[in-house]
Simulated scan of single mutants.
Amino acid sequence: MPFGDGPVPKQILLVVAIVLSLSARSAFVSHAAEKLAGQQSSAQAPAAARPVGTIKSISGNTIVLTTDAGADVIIQVQDPAKLVRIAPGQKDLKDVTPIQLADLQPGDRILVRGKLADDGKSVAAASVIAIKKADIAEKQSRERKEWQRHGFGGLVSNVDAAGNTINASLPSPDERKTVAIHFSKDTILRRYASDSVKFDDAKPAPLDQIKPGDQLRARGTRSADGAEFTADEIVSGTFRNIAGPISALDASAGTIAVQDLVLKKSCATCLPPWHNASPRV
């Protein structure tokens, strides 16, 4: 029965209040139950895992993967797992090649998606994305040639972040003494690892890590007069220069001992595997 514009009877208001209260409690209980169920499901479900690294060995359907952090992880690859191959540097999965477990070899790089076992030491793989060792070697060979044709190196004189320019002095007396290296937001900036002089170990790094005195290598296009350089990629690092006579050489261990003329003592130095890296300055 419509009430028009008159006051609503108290009995009706009470009924409405009770209904609203029950509805609110029901919604709250439902939400709490869903949340609790979600927490229980999450607690019971195996943890997701995405280890990435280099294949150490393969036996049957078991892969021993050495992760980039240095730990070994056991990967169990069952029949439902999807295995694909991508090219080095590929940024998406639009163009992949399906492969079999037998196509994988030690030295190949893989990214595994799966579930971590209760022991935390093995992963049941749902998918494996692989980059073949041979493809990586071919890409590195192309990059070395590209750096040799379109790269140069020098010592950082100063960094003008506002002007997107790094001034570098060249070591050769036959070349112009200073070159202005121009970079943009698309320029790749990398930094040599603190424990390695291998080009392939260089990691992405922000501009503020480049300091005067750093050794720098740039790849890109140099102006006709040699005064300017537009960089596609810049790799920098801080290295200690040692000058002095060689006092010992161990070719099998890849080390040399140099009598440092500044510190007046012998310093052992590891020889880098240059055949696997682009030469630095």
Rank of each mutant, 00 (worst) to 15 (best):
Arg142Val: 15
Phe28Val: 02
Ser23Trp: 03
Ala205Val: 14
Ser122Gln: 05
Ser127Ala: 01
Arg240Glu: 14
Arg240Thr: 11
Arg142Thr: 15
Val112Phe: 01
Ile12Gly: 01
Ser236Ala: 13
Phe28Tyr: 10
Thr62Asn: 10
Asp108Glu: 08
Pro2Cys: 08
Ala162Pro: 02
Pro173Ala: 09
Val29Thr: 03
Ala134Tyr: 11
Pro171Cys: 06
Arg144Tyr: 05
Ala218Met: 10
Ala117Cys: 08
Pro279Thr: 02
Asp79Phe: 07
Val123Met: 01
Ile18Asp: 01
Ala102Gly: 02
Arg25Asn: 04
Leu111Pro: 02
His150Gln: 08
Ala43Ser: 11
Asn276Pro: 00
Lys132Ala: 05
Gln44Trp: 09
Leu249Pro: 01
Ser41Glu: 13
Gln100Tyr: 03
Gly244Leu: 07
Asp5Gln: 12
Asp260Lys: 04
Lys265Thr: 06
Asp201Met: 13
Leu155Gly: 06
Asp5Lys: 13
Gln215Leu: 14
Lys203Met: 14
Leu13Ser: 07
Val52Asn: 07
Ala27Glu: 04
Ala277Trp: 00
Pro9His: 05
Met1Ala: 06
Ile86Arg: 02
Val112Gln: 01
Asp195Cys: 09
Asp208Arg: 06
Asp250Thr: 10
Thr221Ser: 03
Arg240Gly: 10
Ala43Pro: 05
Leu170Thr: 12
Leu20Ile: 03
Pro98Lys: 05
Thr66Ile: 14
Asp95Asn: 13
Gly120Asn: 02
Gly151Val: 04
His150Thr: 15
Ser21Cys: 08
Ser184Ile: 15
Thr66Glu: 12
Leu207Pro: 03
Ala69Asp: 13
Gln44Met: 12
Pro7Val: 15
Ala37Asn: 14
Val16Lys: 02
Ala243Gly: 12
His275Met: 13
Ser266Lys: 09
Ser26Ile: 12
Asp195Gly: 02
Ala43Val: 03
Ile74Gln: 04
Gly244Arg: 04
Asp92Leu: 11
Ala257Gly: 08
Ala37Phe: 12
Glu233Arg: 04
Val262Phe: 13
Phe229Asn: 01
Ser23Glu: 03
Thr97Tyr: 08
Ala193Asp: 14
Asp135Tyr: 02
Ala205Asp: 09
Gln100Met: 08
His275Pro: 07
Pro80Phe: 04
Gly163His: 00
Ser196Pro: 10
Lys94Ile: 15
Gly244Asp: 07
Val123Ile: 04
Thr230Gly: 05
Phe239Met: 14
Phe152Val: 08
Ile131Phe: 03
Arg191Val: 14
Ser169Asn: 10
Ile234Ser: 00
Val281Pro: 06
Ala102Leu: 08
Asp5Ile: 15
Ala71Arg: 13
Ser184Pro: 08
Ala137Pro: 03
Ala161Trp: 09
Ser57Cys: 05
Leu170Ala: 04
Gln140Val: 15
Asp5His: 12
Lys203Gln: 12
Leu93Tyr: 03
Ala81Pro: 00
Glu233Ala: 08
Arg176Met: 10
Ala224Glu: 14
Ala277Tyr: 00
Arg142Glu: 13
Ala17Asp: 04
Lys35Phe: 07
Ala231Met: 09
Leu93Trp: 02
Lys264Leu: 15
Ala37Gly: 11
Ala277Asp: 10
Arg109Ser: 00
Lys82Pro: 00
Ile86Thr: 00
Pro206Tyr: 09
